[in-house]
Structures are given as C-alpha cells and as structure tokens.
Computed example of a mutant assay.
Amino acid sequence: METVRPKGERGSVYYFFVNRTSGKGRSVEVWNEIEKILKEKNVQYQAVTTDTKEEALEILKELLCTKQAIQAIVALGGDGTIHSIMNELIGSSVPFSVIPTGSGNDYARARGISKDYRKEIEKLLLNEQKKIDLLEVGNRHCMTVVGIGFDGKVADEANKMKWKRWLGGTAYFFTILKVLLTYKPSEIKLKLNDEERLFKKVWLIAIANHAYYGGGIKICPIAKSNDGKLDICVIHSLPKWRLLFILARVFSGKHVSMKGVEYHQVEKIEVESDEPLFVTADGEMMGQTPTTVSIKKEAFHVMN
C-alpha cells in the first residue's frame, strides 16, 4: 500500500490517514478491512499511508493548501497521531474523526469511539458534525489531558520505552512504578483563573478536556469537551506510600474524594514550580514549567 499525495481538484472525499507503525501494525490490518466496507458502500475516499507523523503532516499541509472538497480527515492511529493532525487542522472547518489503533487511545475512549471499525464507519458516514473545546498550551493545542510533574515524567519515560507499542497501557503501569522510586514532589504556585494558590509537595497536576490519559487512567472523571472548562486534578501533601493508594484508584476515577486530592474547574491555569517540571499533552512532550493552559471553546470540528 503506497502513500498517495493529493493532486488537483476532485469531489468531496474522506481522507484516511493510516499510520503503518501504530498499534503494532494494526492500523494497516484495520484499514484493509475498512477499505472493503467503503468500496461496498461506494464511498469516495483516499488513503494516505505513512510511517511517521512528520510525513503525515507534510501531506496534510499539501492537502489543505489545495481547493479540494474534503468530507473529513480520519486518522487510524493512536493519540500521538491524533495530536499532530489536530494541531494542523486548527483554524479550518474540515471535520476530524479517528479509528483507534494505537496503544493508548484515550481520545477515542473518552468520546465513546470503539474498536468496532464497521460500527464506527457507519457512524462516520452519517456526517453528523459537532464542535468541541480544546486545551491551549502556548502555541499548541491538546485534545485530552495536560500532565505536569509526576505524570509528565511518566509520559516522558514511557515514550522512551522500547516496548511501549507492544505493551500498550501496561507500559504506563510499569513506568509509574519505575518513576515512583526516585521522584520527589515539588512546590507549585498555581493561578486558577484569578486566584493564586501555593501547594507544597505536589506530585502531579492534570489539566483535562477529556477524562482519560495514560492508556485508560481516569484522572479527571467528569471532564467534558463541551462545557467550556478545564478540569484540574492536583495530588499533593502526601507521603509516597499514600500516593500508591491514590494511584490504585485513579484508573477507575474514584480518587477525587481522597485526602490529598483537589479538584477544580476553571477556564485558565498558570503553573510555576520551584524547579522545571515536564509538561506533556496527549502524551506528547510540550516542554517544561512555567506554563499556561487555557480553554479554547468550540474550537474544533469533529464527526463523533
């Protein structure tokens, strides 16, 4: 299956971006089945198959510069692929959708998009569009969760893990245990809207637009992408052994009422720390603190 670059004008087309390396090669297997469905239904489509996010972005930029009628951009891949394509689509009215084939699939999980690709294609062809909020971090945007501190370090270590794409969400579990051995909490100054707060011994700050990150961790269980709010989870002032109890419940979202956990909903947050901390978004590295995150309401067109 070869990459086809966009050329000239044509009718309204669904463009499927297929990441060959995502999900242990599952993207290609799923695409082969999806293509059969599209042919059965006489749907106009174009496959764009790539090995890297960089290659996909180059082709997407070319496509958006043409005057072609695009029905939707559909990504077969994981959260990293989604993050890159979404940032390229910002400012356009082209709707976006995803068929989850990655290791984490947190965006798909939060939006109720299943791995039943036949069912999801049926939904996609209904052409029902809606707008969702995005998180704005500097000049970048994020669909799911910004992680700062312990979770930022975990994401950084997990991304370096040689076997991440084979272990899926389990990679985050093993990385959590590894990072926990040496990680030290920090002193953090937060500005929540206009209110300044000082937190000591902060383990992590999660800033969410959707509930999940890290391959199914329900860090901000009531986060919604259409309420115009950031959901903030701060875990602080705990010894390491108590943090373990919280982490044991965070996968189910039952940690928010526990001692040492604060939960807020705001439109903007500024984060300063006594030493630079990793900042991740959609599992991708975004830099270090200090940082500012704000909500960008109804900023993105989606098909699900």
Rank of each mutant, 00 (worst) to 15 (best):
E272M: 15
L167M: 15
Q288H: 15
Q129L: 08
S186R: 07
L57H: 01
K164T: 02
K229S: 07
I222E: 14
G287S: 15
A72P: 02
G147F: 00
Y263T: 13
W241K: 12
V154R: 03
I207F: 15
H141R: 14
M303T: 09
M286P: 12
V279Y: 15
I269Y: 08
T52Q: 03
V137S: 08
K123M: 07
V18T: 08
M303G: 03
V234I: 15
Y212R: 10
F174S: 00
V48L: 11
T292P: 09
I132S: 05
S237T: 04
L125F: 05
C65M: 11
K131C: 04
V271R: 11
H264S: 10
E267L: 05
I176P: 06
K131M: 10
D274L: 00
T21P: 03
G260I: 10
N127K: 14
G102T: 01
S294V: 11
R111G: 00
E187A: 01
L126P: 00
F173L: 08
E9C: 10
I37V: 13
I217V: 14
L89G: 02
I132T: 09
E29C: 04
G77V: 02
S273N: 14
N226L: 05
N304M: 12
D227G: 09
D156L: 11
I207S: 12
Y172N: 00
D156I: 00
K39V: 04
F245M: 12
Y183W: 07
A223S: 14
G260K: 11
I176G: 01
S93V: 03
K123G: 02
K61P: 00
Y212V: 01
F251I: 12
F150T: 01
K240P: 05
G228D: 11
T144E: 08
E187H: 05
V250N: 10
L198Y: 11
K254N: 14
I188M: 01
P95Y: 01
E58V: 09
V146E: 09
K61G: 02
E195K: 15
I217W: 01
I59F: 05
E58F: 06
G228A: 13
G91Y: 02
T182M: 03
I37P: 04
